[in-house]
Design a protein around this nucleic acid. Structure first.
Length: 272
DNA sequence: AACCAGTTCAACCGCTGCACA
DNA sequence: TTGTGCAGCGGTTGAACTGGT
């Protein structure tokens, strides 16, 4: 007899999350925090297992998530860390605030692996691949190139510069609205500001330590840690910053086809 | 416009390690 | 020490998307 499944799967929903489910989960976590993932779906009114909720929150809904493509520098760092840590994606991800292990893993499998192969490096050992014969045109391209981590052939450099040319890189929304990275940076800056004001940062870093205890003992988003401020100041920050943050969240979520969050559904103002 | 192949990435599955009784 | 329950992790899958013909 194996172990019991993590949850009773009968009647539970699977597959892509709907906007409504996202709202429910977000609303619940922001209002009540994460006590125990197993109880989250039940209390939030979701027909999902706790595992699924956790994954959705960590990989998609978390407010401190950094969105958008990886920079050349980040890629180099990933390669460097991978050479030391191997496929320990969560360890690697811990070096990249706002990035998830899933995101890094996906990026590794879809982009970096290929890049390394193109450079004649084995993605597993990070050592030059032994070639049997030099008949392959593709592999020959790397012959005169010193295989360096950040080094790429001229061709690759050109491709990269096109892909990662700062403000040129854009994200398409479902309505084909185009958001430049300047917009993204601004939003992320807003998040950072809000995190520092609301102590979301320390809450998130607590969460990032990914210890069961810290997660379960984190009773709620630490909106109350404004003890150094006067009552008026702290309540002002709570109300206004939270609203700003929610507004920013709207923009972020709308990238993926979200409608602006319904104030009624996302009734943060009524949390107290 | 339609089809197909390749790519991306969100989500799932199953295993592991930790905490606790 | 052992068994159980849980969160977390890494591998894998498959739907959606993209680009070429």
């Amino acid at each position: 007899m194996g172990r019991q499944p993590c949850c009773d799967k009968v009647g539970l929903k699977r597959g892509p999350w709907t906007i409504e489910e996202d709202h429910k989960l977000m609303n619940f976590i922001l209002n009540y925090g994460i006590h125990c993932w197993r109880t989250v779906p039940k209390l939030a009114g979701l027909l999902r297992c706790g595992k699924s909720c956790r994954l959705r929150w960590i990989n998609y809904l978390r407010p401190d998530l950094k969105r958008g493509g990886f920079t050349e520098m980040e890629e180099d760092q990933i390669i460097e860390l991978h050479s030391h840590l191997g496929n320990r994606w969560s360890k690697i991800a811990s070096h990249f605030p706002g990035r998830t292990d899933n995101e890094i893993k996906n990026h590794w499998n879809t982009k970096i692996k290929k890049k390394l192969k193109l450079l004649g490096l084995d993605p597993v050992s990070h050592k030059p691949i032994e070639k049997k014969e030099n008949t392959d045109e593709d592999t020959n391209k790397g012959n005169d190139v010193q295989p360096s981590i950040s080094g790429v052939s001229q061709e690759n450099m050109e491709t990269k510069s096109l892909e990662n040319d700062g403000t040129k890189e854009m994200t398409k929304t479902e309505e084909n609205k185009v958001i430049t990275w300047d917009d993204t940076t601004e939003l992320l800056n807003n998040f950072e500001m809000l995190c520092s004001q609301l102590d979301l940062g320390s809450w998130m870093s607590q969460e990032n330590t990914s210890s069961t205890n810290s997660l379960c003992s984190t009773s709620s988003v630490s909106l109350d840690d404004t003890s150094h401020l006067s009552m008026d100041e702290s309540s002002y920050i709570k109300e206004n910053s939270l609203q700003q943050w929610v507004d920013s969240l709207d923009s972020i979520l709308s990238w993926d086809g979200f409608n602006p969050l319904d104030q009624d559904i996302f009734s943060l103002e009524n949390r107290e």
